[in-house]
């Protein structure tokens, strides 16, 4: 799981509105926001990166859940606490380190049975890097993925099983 990921710097094609943003050095460029531009610093909190990474990882089909057993259990409890919010569910299984210009992300995921874990991890990593880099402007230096568990559909619901092959020939 250590294949080199190409630095996918997605060029932000968003048009700057009005023209007020044109004064900002970072306005149209996909460059790092967090750097000191002489116009002030930009700080992006770790929870921002956590949420974006969590959502991006869940977007990949084959990711059943995020987090290890313990954090999933706590997440389920936290959701029921007022103020714990649904945000807590989004950051389960996501640890981040956010610096001025870079971010490192660790993910704990539970995969669906039947997904190629290697391909899944690659897809998750690609999506997380793209999402975090385009949304925050931080450079993602690494995404470490730990596959904690595999989810077997028949444990939940027999209807989730793939339909049995009825017959090959008529």
């Amino acid at each position: 799981m250590t294949e080199a990921t190409p630095p996918t710097t997605t060029t932000s094609t968003a048009t700057t509105r009005g023209g007020g943003a044109a004064t900002g050095a970072t306005a149209g460029s996909p460059a790092r926001v967090a750097e000191d531009t002489g116009q002030g610093r930009t700080t992006i909190a770790a929870s921002v990166v956590q949420k974006i990474a969590g959502i991006a990882a869940r977007e990949i089909s084959g990711v059943y859940a995020m987090g290890g057993g313990v954090s999933r259990a706590f997440g389920a409890i936290r959701e029921r606490i007022p103020g714990g919010g649904t945000g807590a569910a989004n950051i389960a299984g996501v640890q981040v380190e956010v610096g001025e210009k870079q971010a490192a992300i660790d993910l704990d995921i539970v995969v669906e049975y039947g997904a190629s874990i290697r391909e899944l991890a690659r897809a998750v990593r690609r999506n997380v890097i793209t999402a975090v880099e385009s949304m925050t402007g931080l450079e993602v230096i690494e995404v470490n993925i730990a596959v904690n568990d595999i989810h077997l559909p028949e444990l939940d619901n027999p209807e989730d099983l793939p339909a049995p092959v009825v017959s090959r020939v008529e």
């Binding site: 044109a22 900002g24 930009t42």
Partner: peptide
């Protein structure tokens, strides 16, 4: 994208009070 929003906020604040603007994005609302 956060960088664009931050740049626009910085421009909006600097228009009222010229000078550097430190922007902190504390959280995002889903």
């Amino acid at each position: 994208p956060i960088p664009q929003a931050v740049a626009e906020l910085r421009a909006a604040v600097a228009a009222l009070r010229p000078g550097p603007v430190d922007v902190t994005v504390s959280d995002i609302a889903l």
